[in-house]
């Protein structure tokens, strides 16, 4: 979708998406596919942001509700919600978001580490921040959203 014919090595391609009113993005290289929301089978004794598991062509895919994890108030998911299937550290998982917006190329130099605001629920999940067309774009730290990362609720 990028207008340029080549990829600038100093630029990072990001897939941006909406969670509630906020705009996030992930490195496009970690994205495997984007699919519509299907009801997930809830896992007993799991953390609130773990929606459960769905069947992704024969494999069991855990679904992380990003809104819940990031503390963003949203309504229950509908068919209009989207699951972004990402691959992190040999693990595949689905991120439940509201909508996918765009693919962006951001120069590495334009990315800034987030200010330390421990009070915020999203603290620890944001790797970097950048400004695009006057909007702030958050770059998600996929390592932090992996299910094994935080201590299991049980």
């Amino acid at each position: 979708m990028s207008e340029q014919g080549h990829i600038d090595p100093t630029e990072q391609e990001l897939l941006s998406f909406r969670v509630g009113e906020q705009e996030y993005s992930v490195d496009i290289m970690s994205v495997r596919e984007i699919r519509g929301w299907t009801r997930a089978t809830p896992l007993p004794h799991s953390a609130a942001h773990v929606r459960g598991v769905i069947n992704l062509r024969g494999t069991v895919l855990p679904i992380i509700d990003l809104a819940r994890q990031l503390g963003i108030p949203v309504a229950e998911p509908t068919e209009r919600n989207v699951i972004i299937v990402v691959h992190v550290h040999d693990q595949t998982l689905g991120l439940l978001v509201d909508a996918v917006s765009d693919i962006l190329s951001i120069p590495q130099g334009d990315m800034q580490p987030p200010p330390d605001m421990a009070e915020d629920a999203s603290h620890g999940f944001i790797k970097a921040l950048t400004i695009i067309e006057g909007r702030m774009l958050r770059i998600l730290d996929l390592d932090a959203v992996q299910p094994g990362h935080e201590t299991e609720a049980a």
Binding site: A40, T41, L43, P44, V50, V60, P147, E152
Partner: peptide
């Protein structure tokens, strides 16, 4: 794919395509 779930051994996929524990 996820980790240990207490009381649950594994998952399976049923005829309707849904995951069942």
């Amino acid at each position: 794919s996820y980790g240990h779930v207490p009381g649950i051994a594994a998952a399976t996929i049923l005829g309707d395509g849904q995951v069942a524990l």
